[in-house]
Amino acid sequence: MNPKQKHNKKQKLIDDYGHNCWWCGKCLPKNQLTIEHLRPRSRGGSDCLENLRLACLSCNLSRGNSLYPPNWVRGNCL
């Protein structure tokens, strides 16, 4: 994704899901949310909106290329 596409997709995700981390539910300002791939690109995931969500940096980094963050339980990043 180029920067303009990334900005547009991030805004669309905010419009659809709000300013919340997909995993832990924290409400954060736009500049503290990262674009997260539900199915990581290293596992064949794409950059289509259906595969993207917003996540806080902590949840995004802790997840790596696994399908869920470590110790994830029903939307809680521990």
Rank of each mutant, 00 (worst) to 15 (best):
N71M: 09
H7M: 12
K4I: 11
P70G: 03
Q32K: 04
S62M: 06
P69A: 02
K26A: 10
Q5H: 09
G45N: 05
K10A: 02
N2G: 15
C77A: 09
N20D: 08
K9G: 08
N60I: 11
D16S: 05
I35M: 02
T34L: 13
S66E: 07
L54S: 08
Q5R: 04
L38Q: 07
L52V: 06
Y17F: 14
R63W: 11
L49T: 00
L13T: 00
I35G: 02
R74E: 15
A55P: 08
L38F: 11
R63G: 09
C21Y: 06
C24W: 03
L57K: 05
I14T: 07
L67H: 06
W72R: 03
L57V: 06
V73G: 06
C48A: 15
D15T: 12
I35A: 02
I14Y: 13
H19K: 08
G64Y: 10
K9F: 12
W22E: 06
N20E: 10
P3I: 10
C48I: 14
L67D: 07
S66N: 08
H37C: 00
C59S: 15
C56R: 01
D47C: 05
P40T: 00
Y68N: 01
C24N: 02
G45V: 04
G64I: 07
S42L: 02
G18D: 11
P70I: 05
Q32W: 14
S62F: 07
W22Y: 14
E36L: 06
R39W: 03
M1S: 15
C59N: 13
C56P: 13
K30Q: 13
S62A: 06
C59P: 13
L78S: 15
Q32M: 08
A55C: 08
C27F: 11
P40R: 00
P70M: 03
L54E: 10
L49E: 01
C77W: 11
L61R: 06
T34I: 15
M1C: 12
L49R: 00
L67P: 06
W72N: 05
L49D: 01
N60H: 08
N31A: 05
K9A: 12
W23P: 09
E36P: 10
L13D: 00
K26W: 11
S66K: 02
R39L: 05
H19F: 13
C59A: 14
K4D: 11
C21P: 13
L33H: 14
G64M: 10
G18M: 12
G18T: 07
Q32R: 02
L78D: 14
N20L: 13
P40N: 05
A55S: 08
C21R: 00
L67C: 03
K9Y: 13
E36W: 12
N8E: 11
Q32H: 07
L57C: 08
S42G: 01
S58V: 07
W23Q: 03
L67K: 01
V73A: 07
W72P: 11
K9D: 12
T34S: 09
Q32F: 12
K4M: 12
L49C: 01
P40V: 00
N51T: 01
N76I: 11
R41G: 04
L28E: 04
S42C: 01
C56M: 05
K26F: 12
C77Y: 11
E50C: 00
